[in-house]
Design a protein around this nucleic acid. Sequence first.
DNA 1: TGGTTTTATGAATCTTTTA
DNA 2: CTAAAAGATTCATAAAACC
Lengths: 361, 361
Amino acid sequence: MTATGSDPMRIVHGECVAEMAKLPDKSVDLIFADPPYNLQLGGGLRRPEGSEVDAVDDEWDRFDSFAAYDEFSRSWLGEARRILKDTGSLWVIGSYHNIFRVGATLQDLGYWILNDIIWRKTNPMPNFKGTRFTNAHETLIWCAKSEQARYRFNYHAMKALNDDLQMRSDWSIPLCTGAEREKLNGRKAHPTQKPEELLYRVLLACSEPGDLVLDPFLGSGTTGAVAKRLGRRFMGIEREETYIGVARSRIERARQVELDALEISRGRRAQPRVPFGALLETGLIRPGTPLWDARRRFEARVRADGSILHGKEAGSIHKIGAQVQNAPSCNGWTFWHMEEAGSLMPLDALRQRYRDQQQTG
Amino acid sequence: MTATGSDPMRIVHGECVAEMAKLPDKSVDLIFADPPYNLQLGGGLRRPEGSEVDAVDDEWDRFDSFAAYDEFSRSWLGEARRILKDTGSLWVIGSYHNIFRVGATLQDLGYWILNDIIWRKTNPMPNFKGTRFTNAHETLIWCAKSEQARYRFNYHAMKALNDDLQMRSDWSIPLCTGAEREKLNGRKAHPTQKPEELLYRVLLACSEPGDLVLDPFLGSGTTGAVAKRLGRRFMGIEREETYIGVARSRIERARQVELDALEISRGRRAQPRVPFGALLETGLIRPGTPLWDARRRFEARVRADGSILHGKEAGSIHKIGAQVQNAPSCNGWTFWHMEEAGSLMPLDALRQRYRDQQQTG
DNA sequence: TGGTTTTATGAATCTTTTA
DNA sequence: CTAAAAGATTCATAAAACC
C-alpha cells in the first residue's frame, strides 16, 4: 500500500527518514513536524512547594552535540523536501533550544520561509526559580519548497476564522490539558501533546479536503486526529511503539465534523490588561512622580520598575494602596492620582490614554 | 578616551567590529544589537574579504549570501563575546529573515540562550497582498556568555513592572510612531527605529545604574536615549554619518530620571545573609522558645547555639523543617513561626527586624 | 446538589555560598 | 575542585476534595 493508496489514515511504525524514503517524489501536500527539541535537561526541577516537575527526559530527545542535531535535521528535512509537492508547504515547531538551528538548516536546504508563527501559551508553566522570563511560547516556521514555489494558502479561511481580521503571526492558544489530553494508566500518554486548535489552524490554512498530510514525528497523533476531522488524508510515522498505540486509538475515535468546531476559542475581545509598568516604559508617567489619593491624605512615589514607595514600604499600586488604608485589597488604578494642570487625575485616566495609544500607534 | 572614560554617553562613527576591537576584554555589562538583516539589499553586507554581496537571484547566490551573512555574524558576535563581562548578557533583535541564522551562530560561539522574547506588535503593517499571515512580531534572543556564566537579571523589578506577575517571554508593544519617531526633513530619519518601551525593559532587566551598555548598530539611537534616561553609561557604534547626527541630537535631548527613582525592587537574595544564631545573640529570640509551622502540626524548640530540637533530632531550622515535612529541602525562615501576642509570626519577620536594627543601630 | 477550597500539573536548558 | 548547607522560588487551569 502506498501513501496515496486506499487507507486514508495510515500510521507507520519506523524511522522517519527511512519511511519517507519509500515515498515517491512530490507526493505530499503538507508536512507538519514536531521534531525532538534537544532539551538536554539536567537534574530534577522542583516547584517552590516541593513537588517535582515531570520533565522531558526521554531517550529520543538526547543528542551528543549541536553538530549531531544539525545532521539529524538535514537528513529528515532533505527527504521531506523531496517528497513535498511544488505547491506544498512544511511546518516545523520548536523552542529556542532547537528552532534557530532548524530554521538555518531549512534555509540552507533551499526552503523559503513564509512566516514564523508564535504559539503564545495562555497558561504556560512559570519559571519556578526566578532566573529567567516565563518561557511562554513556542515557535513554528512555515516555509515553501523554494522561493519560486507557488504554495497553497487559504487566506480567506484564516481571515474568517479571525473575525474577518487578517490572521496575525501570533496565536494565543492554551496548553493541551483536561479531556483533550491523552492518558495511559491515568498518566499523560505523551510528554508533549500539542493542542488540536494549533493543528486545526495549520491544516485549514495550508491544505484542502482530500489532500495528503504527513507527520514524520507522530507522537500522540494530534495531526492525524485533526486531519481526520477536516477530511484530509494522512500518513504518520513514529518510532516508539507505545505512541503508535496511543495515536492509533485516538485517530480511530476522531470524527469528521463541520467547520464550526473551533467557534468556542475565538471570542477573545476583552480589554487588554495593562500593567502599571507599561505607563513608565512609554513615558506616560515618569519615575519619581508623586502620587496621592483623592483627598491627599497619602503620598507615594513612582519608581523605575513600576513599584511605588510609601515611607519605607515599596510595592505595587494595589498593594500599597491597600496598606495605607489598612484594607484587604485596593484598586490602585482608581485610588492613586497624579497631579496634572494643578488638579488630581486618577491613574485610570492615564491607563485609558495608554490603551488609546496602543490602538492608534 | 576609553569606553570607561569620562564621557558617559559616547558615540563612535565606524565599523562595529573594528571599534569593538579597541575595547579591553570583559569591559561591557550589556550589549543590545539590532544588526542588519537585509539579505536581498547587499548594502549592509560585505564578504570577509571586503567585496559586496550581490542581490539574490539564483540558488548559488543565495547560498553565497547566507554564508556571507553567517561570516558577518560570527565576526561581530565573536568580538562582542570577548568584551562582555562574565556577568554580562547580550540581546539581539531580528525577524525570520535573519534571526534563525543569528541564533545558531550564537550557540556555535558558546553563548548560552536564556530566553527568546517575542515583541508582539500591537499595530503591525498588514500583509497587503493576502499571501501570508500578518508579520506581527519580531524576535529577540537573550543570552549569557556561557552556560556557566552568572548573569545579571533583575527578576523582581521585572515582576514589579508587570503588576507582580512574573514577566513572560511575549511583550506587547506598539511600533514607534508619532512624537517618538525621529524625523529628518519631515520624513522618518531611520527605517527601523525601535520603541523606547522595548529598550526600557531590556536595560531595566539586565543592567544597573552606572553599568556600561553597548549598541554596536546604533541607528537612530534608541538604546542610547533609554540608557541616559536610566542612568547607564553608554557606547554606540554606527557606520552611517547621517544616523550619527540623528542619534547624537536625540541622546542630547534625553533626560535622566532622578536617582532615587531608579531604585528597583530587590529579592531576598540581594539582602545580607543573617545566620539564625544572630537572632539569639541580639536577644530577638531566646533559647527554649517553641517554634511551630503555620498550621501548628509540628513543634520544635530553640537551643542556645541556634540549632533547634524536634523530638530527638537537632539541626538547623532548614534541616529540621525539611525533615519533619519529609521534603528534600525547606526554607526554615518562612516555615517556622513563633508566638507573639497570641498569633504566629514567621521567623522571616524577626529576620527583617534584625536587619532594620543593623541599619539604624 | 452546589459552592468553596485544596491539590495537581504543564517541552524547563531554573541557586548561591561555605566548608 | 567537589560536597554540603543555606535558603529562594510559581501561574493558569482543571480536577478532586470538602463543606
